[in-house]
């Protein structure tokens, strides 16, 4: 199943960095809510996706490197049947680094995780095998930790890295469809799908 730009923009809308696009969709749907096909329009098509340099703190990875690291981590975190992960993750994380209130926490936590990858596995996250990335996340404790934005490293990795990726995926239309729900919570997918029966 292919992740699309529409999915990325939908994820950003659910996560609080797609305000302009969301307002647009609410406005556009004013006149046609509930109608067939209400689910088919993305939450705006004019979202900004350009790369920004982000924080200038030299101790942190630059934003393009943060995005690369997220793409690398997404490989074990996302199901194998997904394709086009790179563009999806890139668009989401660029948006989050630009606008999310937790952008600093994202940068700091991913920088720490990337440093651990180098220390423990001999290379930055994008350069080590996916199986090692998976192992690193578990060795950090992010699999069993509850998310806490300013907690231990395990809790922060869970909040700012693993759950950042999982929230983006499973609040998007394609992520929802993987599970069997076209309009997952957080996605303004209209008021038609709840009436539809299952596809047999």
């Amino acid at each position: 199943m292919e992740l699309t730009r529409r999915d990325a923009l939908a994820a950003l809308a659910a996560m609080g960095t797609g305000g302009a696009a969301v307002t647009g969709v609410a406005h556009v749907r004013d006149g046609d809510a509930g109608g067939p096909g209400n689910d088919d329009d993305g939450p705006g098509s004019d979202g900004e996706t350009s790369m920004t340099s982000g924080d200038s703190d030299d101790s942190l990875l630059a934003d393009p490197a943060i995005v690369e690291a997220f793409v690398a981590v997404a490989e074990p975190v996302y199901p194998d049947e997904l394709s086009s992960i790179e563009e999806f993750v890139g668009t989401v994380i660029e948006g989050r680094l630009r606008e999310a209130p937790t952008a600093d926490g994202i940068r700091e936590t991913m920088t720490e995780l990337d440093e651990l990858a180098t220390e423990w596995y001999g290379g930055r996250l994008p350069t080590i095998p996916a199986a090692d990335r998976d192992r690193l996340l578990r060795e950090v404790g992010a699999d069993v930790a509850g998310e806490v934005p300013d907690g231990t490293l395990a809790e922060r990795v869970r909040y700012h890295v693993v759950n950042e990726l999982l929230f983006a995926l499973y609040a998007s239309p394609t992520g929802g469809e993987l599970v069997g729900i076209e309009n997952p919570q957080g996605h303004p997918g209209g008021t038609e799908s709840y009436r539809r029966g299952p596809t047999r």
Partner: peptide, 15 residues
Amino acid sequence: SEGYDDRSACVGYGT
């Protein structure tokens, strides 16, 4: 269920 009082119709956020 439709636009009303300058507010949009429900768009199904689910929250």
